[in-house]
Design a protein around this nucleic acid. Structure first.
Length: 168
DNA sequence: AAAGTGATCATG
DNA sequence: ATGATCACTTTG
């Protein structure tokens, strides 16, 4: 079944582990669909999370994080890699789940490249009509909780949070 | 271990 | 207008 905006309106802290095993679907320019099961995620939660892009408030870039859950947040990292996040939670509260890996591609930059997701997908609602959506086939894989990667600029307590989730 | 790469945001 | 910074990957 296709996951809806209502599903994505739950908190990122819940959805990051919950999305493991779900299937990202992307319609390519050639009109075929690429599918891959999520194997690793991280959550970024609110302005109070010093690792979250919205920790310094609303800007042109972070505006999309304040949407109601169920839209894509894609941004260019290190000048080379498009990183794909799913915005979650209620409107007005900035939070998202970063897709760090899918079956067939580990690492957030590689996963987006593998799926064919680019900055052109930024702000798009996640549904089949927009060519980018997520399906649940009932899989509930076991996972482990780890600290987030690449956030050395965040406060020590935020760095210590177990907000990365990885399928065993 | 270190470079490569460019949008973004804060500063002047 | 300028410069530091960066939720990474590849190569050695």
């Amino acid at each position: 079944m296709v996951l809806t905006k209502e599903y994505f309106s739950a908190p990122a802290t819940l959805l990051a582990p919950g999305l493991l095993g779900k299937i990202i679907c992307v319609r390519s320019p050639q009109n075929d669909v690429i599918r891959a099961r999520i194997t690793e995620t991280e959550c970024y939660y609110g302005e109070g999370d010093t690792a979250c892009h919205a920790s310094r408030g609303r800007t042109l870039r972070t505006e999309v994080l304040y949407s109601q859950g169920g839209v894509a947040y894609v941004y260019l990292c290190y000048g080379m890699y498009d990183l794909f996040n799913i915005v979650t939670g209620p409107a007005g509260h900035p939070e998202a789940v970063l897709i760090r890996g899918v079956e067939g591609a580990s690492g957030p930059g590689r996963a987006t490249r593998y799926l064919g997701i680019t900055c052109a997908h930024n702000r798009l609602p996640l549904d089949p009509g927009h060519g980018l959506w997520v399906e649940d086939d009932g899989a509930r894989p076991e996972y482990e909780e780890l600290t987030r990667v690449g956030i050395g600029y965040a406060s020590p307590e935020d760095q210590a949070r177990l907000w990365r989730f990885k399928v065993k």
